[in-house]
Amino acid sequence: MMKKIIVLAVMAAAVVMNLAAAGKKEQAENVIRIAGAGGPKPYQWVETNGTLVGYDIDVANEIAKRAGYSLQWEQTEFPALFLGLDANKYQVVVNNLSKTPERAAKYLYSDEYYLRNRIVIVVRKDRTDIKTIDDLVGKKVPIGSGGNTHSLYLQAYNKEHPDAQIDLIVSETEVPVQVAGVATGQYDAGVTDLVVVNNVIKETGLEFNIIVLPDEIQEAIAPTRSYFLFSQSSKEIQRKWDAALAEIIADGTLSTISLKYFDYDYSR
């Protein structure tokens, strides 16, 4: 009798251990390691307590919840996002990332974008003489010293139009400061992202006349759609992620999150 009781106890213990192991395995399979660079705001930033927050983070958390995943967040330097995907340290990264041929050759993209920016010309509220890139000829326009895509496009324009030059002013200041300089008359105009301009308006109360460039000009300057990137070994995660992303686009949740952070709907 005692022997039978011992056998049953051992069997029961084995069942409990197997269930616990299965639970841990299921839990591990449902945890995704995801990373962002922690900037720029309002896409994402790091709170004083070290928590990563922002538009990117809220969107990813909502997608993960609907796809049945738990996210393990990490903030790292921007180049390390891709190194982490290469090493499978992260299954997903998010940081307002555009689609490029080089990235597409190495990583998996979400089927849908989760944000669409606009590239605009920004001028003082009372100016109506500037409506196209050609109208910038002879005007003072700031560019960054780091060679961002907007600056490169304007520099290329000058090379292609040696007799009709934009007066490009190299500035070491941040883009929002350059945009503010347009309102104060330091510059005649700026070429930048609508997200940046709207954020300057929100934080400073400055007013501008904003001209959204035609789609073909925007695409010539820089990709304007942002995607999630996955490691090559994360195809199943990508599949479920895409289904949940399509769902929050369709039911308006993505639009709501965009309005929360930008006071503007960049979801489509």
Rank of each mutant, 00 (worst) to 15 (best):
A22R: 14
I166Q: 06
W241P: 06
V93Q: 02
V92T: 00
D126P: 08
L213I: 06
M2N: 15
K159T: 11
D129G: 09
Y113H: 06
P214M: 07
Q27S: 15
G181L: 03
Y157R: 13
D56V: 09
P42H: 06
V31I: 08
Y113I: 04
L71A: 09
K89M: 04
I63Y: 09
K65T: 13
Y43D: 08
E236K: 02
K3W: 09
R239A: 10
T173N: 14
N117A: 07
G84W: 04
D251V: 08
I63A: 07
P214V: 02
Y187S: 05
R118N: 14
P40L: 10
I237Q: 00
D251E: 13
I121V: 09
P42R: 02
T48N: 12
Y55N: 09
S70T: 15
V122S: 07
S110K: 05
V170L: 12
H150Y: 05
E236A: 09
Q178V: 05
K125T: 08
L194F: 09
A105C: 00
A28C: 02
K240C: 00
I119G: 03
Q218L: 11
E207T: 10
I143V: 13
T224K: 13
T173P: 07
A28E: 08
Q27Y: 07
V123S: 07
G54I: 11
L71D: 07
T204S: 15
A21I: 08
Y227R: 00
Q75M: 12
M11F: 12
G84T: 06
Y55K: 06
Q72P: 09
K3L: 14
T149I: 10
A13F: 15
V16D: 11
D58C: 01
A37F: 09
V16L: 15
T192Q: 04
S145E: 15
V92K: 01
N199E: 11
T192W: 11
K260F: 04
R66N: 13
L213H: 02
Y227L: 07
F262C: 00
K99M: 00
T184C: 03
R33H: 15
A246G: 11
T224S: 06
A64E: 08
S226I: 01
S233H: 10
A156K: 15
I63L: 14
F82I: 01
L97K: 01
L229I: 07
I5Q: 13
A64T: 02
W241E: 13
T224E: 10
A28M: 02
K99V: 00
V92F: 02
A246I: 06
T132E: 08
T132V: 02
S258C: 13
R103I: 00
E216T: 12
L83I: 12
I217P: 10
Y266F: 15
V7E: 12
L154N: 07
R239F: 05
G54A: 03
Q72C: 12
I121L: 13
D163N: 15
L154R: 06
V122Y: 05
D188W: 05
K4Y: 01
L83V: 09
R127M: 11
E219N: 11
G205K: 04
E207D: 07
R239W: 03
E172G: 10
R239N: 13
I248M: 03
L85D: 04
V200S: 02
A37R: 01
V197M: 05
D167K: 04
I63V: 15
Y69K: 05
A164G: 12
I5D: 07
W73D: 14
L152C: 11
G181K: 03
P40V: 10
Q44K: 02
I221C: 04
T100I: 00
W73S: 08
